[in-house]
């Protein structure tokens, strides 16, 4: 390999085999095994006799450091994930329970007298429980709670609808004459009613 041509070819070979022809490449490759000559082997022996650089570390300590570095660590957010999740679920369950508990039945006083004041106008008054309304009429107890109020009062609201022809009564809207009756006239009217009843 002392041949200068071979050295040039070797340099070209290292730079890239594209610079060599196929014959030159073949020539170099057949010479490659010869590169490991006597002098080379002596140098390699010298190099291998060199003590290693530096002082070797404590291998056990290094192994422990590596094992620690590759240990699977749970990230902080995952460590808190389970307790935080449990807390949220508990809170959610509590909220659901509170919202779905049925309200207690409202207590309605059976006999409460509500006195309406002007200041209480805005306060809603619970609707009174319907109770039978009975009146004593003509010796009979009559329940008038079922009577249509508009049907009864409608005529009163519209006095013109009641005419003198209705059972011979005077119009309801003109009852001022009652105040002008004297005692005698009243006695006569009562007497008339008594007679009509009997």
């Amino acid at each position: 390999m002392a041949d200068r041509d071979d050295d040039d070819l070797l340099a070209a070979y290292v730079d890239g085999v594209g610079e060599l022809t196929a014959d030159e490449r073949k020539r170099i490759e057949t010479k490659l095994p010869e590169l490991d000559g006597e002098g080379t082997r002596a140098m390699i022996d010298q190099l291998r006799a060199l003590p290693p650089e530096g002082n070797e570390p404590d291998w056990r300590a290094l192994q422990a450091r590596i094992a620690d570095a590759v240990a699977v660590r749970t990230p902080w957010w995952r460590r808190w994930f389970v307790p935080a999740g449990a807390l949220v679920m508990t809170a959610a369950a509590a909220m659901l329970w509170i919202h779905h508990t049925p309200d207690p039945e409202p207590v309605t006083p059976a006999h409460v007298v509500v006195i309406a004041h002007a200041s209480d106008a805005a306060v809603p008054v619970p609707a009174p429980v319907a109770e039978p309304t009975e009146i004593w009429l003509d010796g009979q107890l009559i329940d008038v709670s079922d009577v249509d109020e508009s049907a009864v009062l409608g005529d009163l609201d519209d006095p013109e609808t009641v005419t003198a022809e209705d059972d011979g009564l005077l119009p309801a809207g003109d009852l001022g004459w009652v105040d002008q009756l004297d005692d005698h006239a009243i006695d006569r009217a009562e007497h008339w009613l008594e007679r009509k009843k009997s």
Binding site: L10, Y13, V14, V17, I28, E29, G39, M43
Partner: peptide
């Protein structure tokens, strides 16, 4: 082969 040639040059240079 390039590794071998590099090795050869390294030893020679040493």
């Amino acid at each position: 082969n390039t590794a071998k040639v590099n090795f050869h040059y390294a030893v020679k240079k040493l």
